[in-house]
Every structure is written in structure tokens, then in C-alpha cells.
Design a protein around this nucleic acid. Structure first.
Lengths: 370, 370
DNA sequence: CTGTTAGCGCGTTCAT
DNA sequence: ATGAACGCGCTAACAG
């Protein structure tokens, strides 16, 4: 069998606890003993058993990260933010992908709770409170990311969806568009709702009648974007611009537009939430309201680690990160030429951190590229 | 604290083992006892502790999947194949991303061995044998995917890189190209080598002099493709076609070509290994030799599960999956129009499975779309 | 049908 | 500076 701490001890002629002290650099061990132990470890290829250690400590030093779409660069970037900060603090991260499927998400939750992960960073598949309540019922810390979950007291890190949508829509309005369709995500997800709200506020502010609003809901993926865009293209009069509620919706919409023989931005302007990596080779390059994905992951992990070390206030906290407008070719509003605008570095500014009842959504922090 | 099996037992007025039997549906339990136990479980929100169970069983029912680039749809599809089959067999999968970094890979290996995962599906970051040897030294089953690791006896599932590259290059030759550059991956990775070999064989078969060969090595990502393509574009005479050794290299190459004001396929034809999802919105849609990513993951998992149940032969096995040529617009060889060819369903045929010394690489199984 | 005993591998506590 | 005993939560093997 694979060697245990006892096998190593025997071979080194010491007690198991001495091996433990060598492995963990704890307590006193004489040089002589240490060397004999290290030799034995090497000889036997001893690998300590984390299971036993965790059982003893009642701590696994593992965090769970649950995202809704691992194929979206936005979420892999968030994941990197989580993982980097977690690793720097001696935690491992288990990454789980729910594909926006609540059943799959709940299966994962069960498994992860059974594995006794120390904490959760959760991007909820839906707005239901139960999943969060389940975690909290086990006294395991959890931080929610991106999407609000009504009815629970929980830390959350999200972006300023409403403000970003407002900025993007206003940009289109300033370019003269009057028929702008919103291609949004599932109706029961807060970001989809808030981005539509921002879109509506912009139209309202521009003095457009409520009838000017055209909102489509679909899934947050290229298929959803394709479907809603096709529906929007069938409107009479045809919209002259699309506001897509995330990057993948925009990618699908772009395909739909090109498929019916129209051009972006000449025939239909296109803007969206979330950035797309430059190499993604979407052409024309997209005008976006970009979220700081990496920081989002980092910030969520920071809140989680605070809870784990009991340095956190008891009240739930809400962190709202600003978004940044990048005007590029797809909206027809870029200043120069046709070459892809290089990716603008993310803003260093953080959103406001508010505690308890004094939550203040950050709205005007959003930056514009003139 | 979180309740244990003993707390439940006490509340239900039974012994811990009875609770265990209820939870695991093992052994005999009277209806009355079962109901009292279930009530107690619900009351206490009891969640069994997998750590303790695993310690007892010396089995975790967890598989590790280590891939080199989680942002590439090819690998996420492989991952889905692994996960689906693993889940169907009662295993959970821990997905780890090495970013082609051997150090990161080895860190993961250590952690995962300490966690006592039951098996590994490994896409090696490099060709070094040590990582595989490390796993095997712990008597943990491992199946290697995609890239050969010389010097070790290990199950491997890979695609027919040489044959696929040959087909793609021949396709370009048949279209009349005589200056074809190969944009490949890192020189020390078997797939990069074999794809160059297939490219060379095609040129040789066409009677072209060795001087016609132009090979560039870079990383397997858009940046690598961009860099090698820029270098290739500087050649005199300029190549009229590119063979890219994977999808992301092609994406980067496409960008490079467009950036210097040339068009694909009119000025430079482009073909590549691996497919790209239709929604990826690369335009023009790529001519590819597509690997059966999902089957690759499934097949690897199947081999691994066999080893875990001791149903496998002792000798290492090699499975070579065929690749399928999809001729689309980027090579200039598509038959009809300019609309993107819909993704052709993956072939159902499997590659040959060979055992021990009788390995036979599958070469001619590759299908062509005429 | 149910319970008792014992041990999986490790590290804290308290001696020596 | 080193070790013995105990227990983390769970379940196989054996009573009863």
C-alpha cells in the first residue's frame, strides 16, 4: 500500500509524531532525526494524506468556485482572480461549471458540502434563495458573485449593470440611433433585469416614448444572442442598433446580422456588456462596457477569506464594481480608422464597499472614453 | 458544530451504524428506524462527511483532469466528455488548468496526490516523463491524453496528428498552393512535431523540394499564432497558404493576416487542426481537421475506469482517434457560396485500440469531405 | 434487524 | 527534543 506516516517513522526509527513535525515544520526536531526522516520520506515516496489531516483539523483549505459558463472568457478570468488570491493564501480552489443549470448547481453544492470545502464563491444559476440558504445552514461562508439573490443575507460582489447599460445605450443614442433593441439574458437573473433597466432609463432620459423600447430575453450564450437578434431583425421598422447584455449574446447577434447580409456597424450598430479578448477575432471589434472580471474574482475571494478568518463584520456586505466603456468599431462611434482598438487596461479604482443597511449602489463611477 | 452521524443517531435513538445504513442504503433497516433516522437527518440538516468516508474506504471516488488551456473550447469539450462519463459512474471530477506550465502542473499533481484522487486524466504540459512517473509511483492509475510521453508505459488516447496534418496540407496542394507555411506549437510537444511531419509528408508526396518547407514553432495560443504568422508573412516569396497546428494558432494567424491588409482565403488560405465552435464567429469560417474532442475525453475516462476496476490488461494501451476533414471557406476550397458551413456531426467511428507492442497508428481512417 | 468493536492516517495534549 | 494516547467521522466485520 501507499506508505503512511507510520511507515516512514518506522524506517527512520522515530515515532510518527516526529515525522509529522518534520513534514509540517512544527515543533522541535533534532538535525539528526530530521535527516533520517527526510531520507525515509524520499525512499518510500511518502505523500502525506490530506484527507486525514483535514478530518483532524476540520478544515480542508479548499474553496469552491461555482460558475455558470466555463466557456466564457469572462468567467475564466474571474476564476483566475479567485484562484490566484486563494493560492496566495494557501487555499486550493475547486472549479465547478453549472451551465446555468440549477439542478447541476445543486448537485455540486451537495458534493462540495460533503467534501467539507471551507467556503464558496457562488455565481448563482438562478435567483432562488435556497442554494445560498443550504450553504449557510451548514455554517459555511459564501460570497455571491455577479447576480443578486433576494431574500438572503449574504456578501455579494457585482458590477454596476444598470449604469453600464445606461452608458452603452446613451452612447448609441448620441450616435443618432432611435430604434435600439435590447438583447438580454434570462428574465429571472438580476443582471439581465438591471441591464434592461439601464437601457430603459437611457431611452427615457432621451425623451423617447415607451413604445420605443424593444426588449428580448434569451440565454446568456451565443445561441441566445442569435435567437433574440433574429427576432429583433424581424421587427418593423428594423432596429438600427443592438444592445447585448453580455459578450456571448453579442457574438451570436453578430452572426445573425451577418447571416442576413447586413453589416456591423453600417447597417446595425452593436454594443455589449463584458469584454471579449482581443484574440477572439470578432470583427468588427466590439464596443463594450467592460467589467473588471479579474478584480471581481479577487474581491469576492477577499471577502470570503475575511469571513474565514473571522475578521469580517457580521453584516452582509455589497461591493459594486464600476464598469468601463470602451468605444470601438462595432458601434460606429470609434474615433479613428478601422483597426481594432487595443484593449484598454482595466481601471484600478474599486467600487464602494458598503455594509449592512447603508448599501449604496455605485452608479456614476463609470468612466467614459470620450 | 455541524452534526455528525452520532448526533443523528442519538436524536433518532439508534446506533451510528444504523444511520450509516440508512444514508448508504446498505444492510437491513426496519421501516420504523429508517423513518426516525430520516426525520433526524432532516431536523439536524445532517450532511455526511466524505472525508471520513474516504479515509475509511481508501477511495475518494474523485478523478483529476489536468488540461493545458481551459480557455480553448477544444479542452472544455474534452472535459465535458470526461465529466459526463465519470459522473455516470459515480465519480466526481476535479478540473485543473496548467496553462501549459509544467511547474503549475507539478504543483497540482502534488496537491491531488495528497488529496488521494483515485485516478488522473492528464494532458501533459511537456513531454517529460517525471510527472507520469510520479503518479505511477503512488500506484494511482493515469491516462495520458493528446500528447505522447516517451519513456513511460502508460495508457494514451490521442488523435491522428500526422494523418490530419497530411490531409490538410494535401488539400491546400490540390488547390494549387506551392508556398505553404506551417505554424506549429512548441517544439517539444509530440502533437506539434507530428503535425509538422504530416505537413512534410504531403509536400514530399507532391514532389516539392525540401526547400519548399517553411516551419514555425510557437505557443498553442492566439499569441503564438499571431507571432508565427507575422514571421511567415515576412517571407519572400510570401506564402499563399498557412497550415495552423491548432485552432487558436489559426485564430491568431487570421488576425495577423487581416492586420496587414490581406484577405483569407483570397490572399492567404488558412487551414487548421481542431474545430472551432460555430458561434466563435471567426470569419471566414475555418477549414479544419477536427478531432473528436468529446469522445477523446470519454475514451480516456473509459480506460481509466477500467484500470480502477482492474478490468484492464496490464500492458499500456494506445487509442488513436481519427480526425475528420471539414472543408469550409478559409481554404478557398469550399464548394458552395459564402455562408458558413454548418458544423458537421462528429464521426461515430472509433480509432483502433491496440495493446502492448502491437501498437498500430491509425492513418487512413481519416475521412474527407469531397 | 441492530449494536459493539476497531481502525482508516494524522496531529493535539500532555508527559518524559 | 521526543513519544504515547486519544479522537476527528465513518463503516466493515462480527456478534446478538
Amino acid at each position: 500500500m501507499t506508505p503512511t506516516i507510520r511507515d516512514v517513522a518506522q524506517r527512520a526509527g522515530v515515532a510518527p509524531i516526529t515525522v509529522s513535525r518534520v513534514v509540517n515544520n512544527s515543533g522541535y526536531v533534532s538535525q539528526a532525526a530530521r535527516q533520517r526522516v527526510e531520507a525515509a520520506i524520499a525512499d518510500l515516496n511518502y505523500v502525506p494524506n490530506t484527507l486525514a489531516r483535514s478530518l483532524r483539523f476540520k478544515k480542508t483549505r479548499v474553496l469552491a468556485l461555482i460558475v455558470t459558463d466555463i466557456t466564457n472568457p469572462f468567467w475564466t478570468t474571474v476564476a483566475r482572480g479567485v484562484e490566484d488570491l486563494a493560492n496566495a493564501n494557501g487555499f486550493n480552489v475547486i472549479l465547478c461549471n453549472t451551465d446555468e443549470d440549477e439542478a447541476k448547481q445543486n448537485d455540486y453544492l451537495q458534493v462540495l458540502l460533503q467534501k467539507r470545502v471551507d467556503g464558496f464563491v457562488l455565481v448563482p444559476a438562478r435567483s432562488a434563495a435556497d442554494p445560498v440558504r443550504l450553504i449557510q445552514s451548514q455554517k459555511v461562508p459564501v460570497v455571491v458573485v455577479d447576480r443578486e439573490v433576494p431574500g438572503v443575507e449574504v456578501d455579494i460582489v457585482r458590477s454596476d449593470s444598470e449604469g453600464g447599460a445606461f452608458q452603452l445605450t446613451r452612447h448609441l443614442l448620441e450616435l443618432g440611433h432611435r430604434h435600439i433593441a435590447a438583447l438580454s439574458g434570462p428574465e429571472d437573473i438580476s443582471t439581465a433585469i438591471q441591464r434592461v433597466a439601464g437601457y430603459r432609463r437611457a431611452l427615457r432620459d432621451a425623451g423617447l416614448p415607451p413604445s420605443a423600447e424593444t426588449v428580448f430575453h434569451g440565454s446568456y450564450d451565443p445561441e441566445g444572442g442569435y435567437a433574440t437578434a433574429r427576432a429583433a431583425l424581424a421587427l418593423k421598422p428594423r432596429p438600427t442598433a443592438f444592445f447585448a447584455a453580455n459578450n456571448f449574446i453579442a457574438v451570436g447577434a453578430l452572426r445573425a446580422v451577418q447571416e442576413v447580409g447586413l453589416r456591423v456597424p453600417e447597417d446595425v450598430a452593436l454594443v455589449c456588456f463584458d469584454d471579449v479578448p482581443a484574440w477572439f477575432s470578432v470583427d468588427p471589434f466590439l464596443t463594450v462596457a467592460s467589467q473588471s472580471a479579474y478584480q471581481m474574482g479577487q474581491q469576492a475571494t477577499e471577502l470570503l477569506l475575511e469571513r474565514l478568518s473571522a475578521h469580517a463584520p457580521s453584516q452582509p456586505r455589497e461591493v459594486v464594481l464600476p464598469v468601463q466603456l470602451h468605444i470601438r468599431r462595432s458601434s460606429g462611434g470609434a474615433l479613428h480608422g478601422t483597426s481594432p482598438t487595443p484593449s484598454v487596461p482595466h481601471t484600478e479604482r474599486w467600487g464602494q464597499v458598503t455594509i449592512g443597511d447603508e448599501r449604496v449602489a455605485v452608479r456614476s463611477n463609470t468612466t467614459e472614453v470620450p
